[in-house]
Amino acid sequence: MAPKIEVCDLSMSYGSYVVMRNVSFAVQRGEIFLIVGRSGCGKSTLLRHLLGLRRIGRRKVLYDGRDINQEISGGDFYGKKIGVLYQSGALWSSMTLAENVALPLEMHTAMEQDEIDEIVSLKLALVGLRGFGDFYPSEVSGGMKKRAGLARAMALDPEILFFDEPSAGLDPVSARRLDDLILELRDSLGITIVAVTHELASIFAIGTRMVYLDAESKTATAVGAPGELLETSKDKNVVAFLSRGET
């Protein structure tokens, strides 16, 4: 079976400024795949490419063996196949948290309003925001925005969830809860998860495999399970990252 996501020789740049060259890796079905690297190395940029928000050449990014551009024009890609949690939450500020979560359900399903309301409160409860449905994004904290963003991302139970730094800005207890939720989503619903993260604790706790983006050589220098990479990698940047720079 074709991997869930396959990246072949992808190069990324802003104008003439090259961020990364020739990045290749594959994400298997049901994996928790992590994109790691130092701050500013291009993780969010890579995510933007995987989401099809920037122009991508032919057969550079494949979903289930099909080209991403084909998937997007097919129509069922956004919202149904993938869900995204942005680095800042990116809640729609003119709507309450509940409306934010409800909107994808209203637009993409034929559910009745009361069923939508139930699902919305379920999703908010899963991220620990029971009762915050009537708050506007400007009325909640940064971490709460992020959690509401997660509730919105998983509103339609997509096949793949993308997270940009899910636990940044959360306290250790909430971060741990989030890790548990991510594992649970994978185990019970079979969702494939791609996450950008800096948190070493989460990397080792939840990561099945990871890709390390190296800012110096501007390419992906390692792909593999975090534990194995720490022990066997010969790349000093990878080892330094995974051991908090203590080598």
């Binding site: 933007r48 989401l51 928000l53 890609f77 956004y78 919202g79 149904k80 993938i82 869900g83 995204v84 942005y86 680095q87 800042s88 990116a90 809640l91 729609w92 500020s93 909107l103 994808p104 637009m107 993409h108 963003g149 919105r152």
Partner: peptide, 15 residues
């Protein structure tokens, strides 16, 4: 909304 990624979020939510 663009600066806050909200427009990207619209697109990736299928709108």
């Amino acid at each position: 909304m663009v600066a806050n990624d909200e427009v990207d979020a619209l697109q990736t939510a299928g709108f």
